[in-house]
């Protein structure tokens, strides 16, 4: 009975893992195949040759490198903006009682539920007047709007879990409120803030609708690939899918222990 249970467990584990990992494995194989191999049929399930041809093509196509850079820049600006807006807000939510706190919290979550098309389309004309259209800052601004609700909720949760007593102790021993925040709360919540920022990075890196609509020349990687979808060969698409996924997967590895804490509040 015990052996049977153990066996069933291993089988279940394998099936679930395969379901998740196999597609990731297959896109990796496809990306490291030669152009001919991509169109060959039937394929070998295990790759015979290892080729950087597709990857070379992908990076040498016009706009790929710059869109890669653009994606990083947009994500970086988004991180900074999210940091500067979400930290004071989360501090207010977790350390003060004020009128309308709970309703504001719910409202912020609701803003995340607004469809991106509803935000992105009307923003174009607003951006044109501010000359933010086709501008990386403009994309970062809307990515910030998308990332803020969750990052504030996540960060409030992190702050709340750190006992107020620590800051009070600092204040009693002569620190100002700001110093208590900088010397106590900030270092104590650093891992959580890092996790939140990684989540924000992934949000920005992955976002495609707004980035496509708000840019023409200065495309992010997602927007670049979406834009060329009709006109590009399979190996370009595969490499695109691969390079869109890799940074995000690497980053999520670092916050794996934080995922539960971040979503526990729902």
């Amino acid at each position: 009975m015990k052996i049977f249970k153990k066996f069933a467990q291993i089988i279940t584990f394998t099936i679930i893992s395969l379901w998740v990992l196999l597609p990731v494995f297959l896109i990796t194989v496809s990306t490291f195949s030669s152009k001919q191999e991509v169109y060959k049929w039937p394929k070998n399930l295990l790759p015979k040759d290892f080729s950087l041809e597709s990857i070379k093509f992908f990076f040498s196509s016009y706009g790929t490198i710059s869109s890669f850079k653009n994606s990083l820049i947009v994500a970086f600006i988004t991180l900074i903006l999210v940091l500067f807006i979400s930290i004071p807000s989360a501090y207010a939510f977790s350390r003060y009682y004020f009128k309308g706190r709970e309703s504001l919290k719910i409202f912020i979550l609701m803003t995340r539920m607004l469809p991106i098309p509803l935000l992105a389309v009307p923003l174009t004309s607003f951006y044109i007047t501010l000359s933010l259209y086709d501008n990386l800052l403009g994309v970062a601004l809307i990515h910030t709007a998308m990332a803020l609700p969750f990052s504030i909720i996540i960060l409030s949760g992190i702050f709340i879990r750190i006992s107020k007593e620590y800051e009070e102790a600092a204040i009693v021993f002569g620190a100002s409120k700001l110093k208590a925040f900088l010397k106590i709360l900030l270092p104590l919540s650093l891992p959580g803030i890092a996790a939140m920022l990684i989540f924000t990075f992934i949000t920005s890196w992955n976002e495609v609708f707004a980035a496509s609509i708000l840019t023409v020349e200065n495309r992010t990687l997602s927007a670049h690939i979406l834009n060329l979808l009709d006109a590009s060969p399979l190996y370009f698409k595969y490499a695109g899918g691969f390079f869109l996924s890799v940074p995000a997967i690497i980053f999520i590895f670092f916050i794996r222990n934080y995922l539960m804490k971040m979503w526990g509040g729902f």
Binding site: I16, S17, V20, L21, P23, V24, L26, I27, S30, I202, W205, N206, E207, V208, S222, I225, L226, L234, K237, Y238, G240, G241, L244, S245, A248, I249, F251, I252, F253, R256, L259
Partner: peptide, 20 residues
């Protein structure tokens, strides 16, 4: 952790992955 990997993958990337 394995199951949370797709959390990091965008809808565009997922589309391309399943295209293959």
């Amino acid at each position: 952790f394995i199951c949370s990997i797709p959390l990091a993958i965008s809808d565009l990337a997922a589309g391309l992955i399943f295209l293959s």
